[in-house]
Design a protein around this nucleic acid. Structure first.
Lengths: 186, 186
DNA sequence: ACACACATGTAATTGGTTACATGATTTC
DNA sequence: GAAATCATGTAACCAATTACATGTGTGT
């Protein structure tokens, strides 16, 4: 045993949607959890074989036996997913290159950190727009599904962090600009 | 050429503190950027050799030639660091197992997600206390150093995100508890 | 004498991405 | 018939952690 995170991500996806191909699983990840999770084909296909070998998912041929291989989660698979869900979550050590560059900011010209911050701010704003839109769409189309409150929580987490990032970036830019007083024009 | 992130983290540390051993560099990382960056000895020692070979740092024996090997950054090293700082920061794809477990929350008993959230909240509170203390200490002891405004920014980022996390976790717990209405006692 | 911090290094393993290779099916 | 999308898989590579191995110096 001892499955990796990809395995549980796959089980999670299959717990909502039966009969998915490896290709489709990736699409699902991309269109649901992509802002805090990602999977590559290089991980998905080997892991599908592995999961099938362990009996946690089962291949179910697509009607005519030809074409794409679809998988569904088994009872054992659901049990494994549940057991994993109850385990303490792992905090993977985060490496934030953006913050590292800010931290070492004094070693470069002042514009360098200011530029990074402006990029960060712009990206944050853009993401905020995207998330707001996603939330609206999710409420319109998925709010009746049983999993919705949980999905919504993760979206709300993103929105809350983005708001905080925006607030911080404004303060940060002010401070950096004060460090570097503009020559009074005229 | 083409150095990895560890190399730049090392150059950054040496740009502030000359004459550090590999061991000491790790301590410095642990006591400064540890909340958004980490390095292991398994990365540091090979990278030091590499950097020395490239002439970006130079070994400088500790007085008596015996004992630990210390390194200092060279002019070329400073140039490399500056060039890297000016490059767009890389967004490493983040994987957040906590959020993934929340997202799949409906697949487990309601207490499972609630437990994760309570852990998250407690950890966030604890970190908030730590950061507040760190900020106080930094203002007391380092506020005159030229790099301080930049360090302070990263600390402020942490505090801002933690405040947002706390706010979110309270809202999230409320919602989850509503989903699971307590049986009225008596 | 013991424990702890200082100090260095390597090998094994993990966990992942990217690029490559291939081909079927659908849509314009 | 061309292009896009669906679909699967592997090999090469990368960056990093962990465990292991070893030893010195300092303080109690």
């Amino acid at each position: 045993m001892s499955l990796n995170q990809t395995a549980y991500a796959i089980l999670g996806v299959l717990s909502f949607h039966p009969r998915q191909t490896g290709y489709h699983i990736r699409k699902t990840v991309e269109s649901s959890v992509r802002y805090f999770w990602s999977e590559s084909y290089g991980q998905i296909y080997p892991t599908l074989k592995r999961l099938a070998g362990d009996g946690l998912i089962e291949p179910c041929g697509p009607a005519g036996k030809k074409g794409a291989q679809e998988y569904s989660i088994t009872q054992a698979g659901r049990a494994a997913l549940e057991a994993w869900l109850a385990l303490p979550y792992r905090e993977d050590p985060q490496r934030n290159e953006f913050l590292l560059k800010i931290f070492f900011g004094i070693q470069a010209a002042p514009e360098v950190a200011i530029n990074h911050l402006m990029n960060f701010q712009q990206r944050t704003r853009q993401l905020f727009g995207t998330f707001t839109e996603l939330e609206k769409l999710a409420i319109q189309h998925n709010s009746q599904e049983p999993g919705f409150p949980y999905w919504h929580l993760t979206l709300d987490f993103g929105l809350t962090q983005l708001r905080a990032s925006l607030e911080w970036s404004e303060r940060a830019l002010e401070r950096l600009n004060q460090l570097q007083p503009q020559p009074a024009s005229k």
